[in-house]
Nucleic acid binder design. Structure first.
Lengths: 164, 164
DNA sequence: ATACAGCTGAACAGATTGCCCAGCGAAGAC
DNA sequence: GTCTTCGCTGGGCAATCTGTTCAGCTGTAT
C-alpha cells in the first residue's frame, strides 16, 4: 500500500520534470521501460497519483489575492452551505473541520476590494452564522508533496531494512 | 494578460483529460494544431500554467489525516519559523496571513495520534508562541481551478463584447 | 494603404507510446 | 528441497505524436 523507493524516485522525477516521458525516465532511473510503465500504472490505479492536471496560477489569471475564511454554520445547514459554496468560482477548496469554525475555505479575488465582493457572496447565505477571514500575504511554502513522498519512500526502505 | 475563451477551453480540456496531447486537443477544439501549441506555450511562459506535476494523494501515501494549524509567531522570528517549517515534510503548505494568527499551515499525518507528533514537531520551535489546530473531517470541495478558469475566460469574452 | 499579429493546413524526420514476448532471479508456498 | 508466482529485463513491432518549419489568409491597428 505504501510506496517503494523506486516509486518515490519516479514521483520525484515526474514532479521535477513533468514532461519527461516514460522512456527518458527509465533511462534516468536506470531501469527498464516496462518497469517504469508498470509502476506508473500501479501508482495511478492505487490512487497515489491522481492525475496530471495543469497547475494553474490564479494570480496569472488575474486573481492575485488569496484568503482563508473560517465559517460557522447553523446546525443542520451544512449540506446547503456546501452546495452554495461549490457554486462560487472563487472558492478554490472547502473543508469541514473540528474546532471553533465549522468550515475552512480558500478564496481568491482580483484585489482586496474584490475580496469584499467574494466574501459577501460567500457569506451571503442563510446557513452561515459568522465568518472570519485571513488574507494571505506571503506563501513561503507553496503546496508541495515531494518531501512527503521522499519521507514515505524512506519509510519503506527502512521497513525493508528491518524486515530483511 | 488575462485569458481568452480558447485558452479557457484548452485549460479545461487539459484538466479533464491530462494525457490528451496537443494533436487530439486541436481536433476536439476544432482549431489547428499549431494554434493549440502556440497557446500552450504562451500559457506556460505567461505563468498561467505552472506545470503538469503529478497530483499525489497524501492519503494513498499513508497520510490520511489533514489539519490546518494557525500559528502565532514571536516578533522578528518569522524567517526562522519559515525555515523550520520548510524542513518538516508533513507541512504541505505555509502562508503568512493577516488577522489574529500570523501563519497558517496545512499538515498531514498518518493518524490522529501521529498528528500529535507532527504538531509537536511543528510548534516545538522557539519562535512559535501559540498554535491552534483544526482537523479536517471532510473535503466537500477539493482544490479546484476549473470554475475560476471558466470565470476568467467568460470575463474575457464579455470584455470583447463591450470593446467591440 | 500598409505593416503586424494570429490562425490555418501541410509537410518532415525523429522520437515516443502501447503492446507483445521469452528469459531470469528472488520470494514464498507446498 | 522443489515448485509456482511475481516483478524486472531487454528486445522488437507498428502506430502515433512531437517539434519545427513553411506559405497563405485575415482582421486590426497605424
Amino acid at each position: 500500500m505504501a510506496i517503494d523507493h523506486l516509486d518515490g524516485r519516479i514521483i520525484v522525477l515526474l514532479a521535477r520534470e513533468p514532461r519527461i516521458g516514460v522512456l527518458e525516465m527509465s533511462r534516468r532511473l536506470g531501469v527498464a521501460r516496462g518497469t517504469v510503465q508498470a509502476r506508473l500504472d500501479r501508482l495511478q490505479s492505487n490512487g497515489v497519483i491522481r492525475g496530471f492536471g495543469p497547475e494553474v496560477d490564479p494570480a496569472a489569471l488575474g486573481y492575485p489575492v488569496t484568503a482563508f475564511a473560517t465559517l460557522q454554520i447553523r446546525q443542520g445547514q451544512g449540506a446547503d452551505v456546501r452546495a452554495h459554496l461549490a457554486t462560487v468560482p472563487e472558492v478554490l477548496e472547502l473543508h469541514t473541520t473540528t474546532g471553533t469554525g465549522d468550515m475552512l475555505c480558500r478564496l481568491v479575488a482580483r484585489s482586496n476590494a474584490d475580496l469584499q465582493r467574494v466574501i459577501d457572496r460567500v457569506v451571503g447565505f442563510d446557513g452561515i452564522v459568522r465568518a472570519s477571514t485571513a488574507i494571505v500575504m506571503e506563501n513561503p511554502v507553496p503546496l508541495r508533496i515531494i518531501p512527503l513522498v521522499q519521507q514515505a519512500a524512506l519509510g519503506a526502505q527502512a521497513a525493508e531494512g528491518r524486515e530483511t
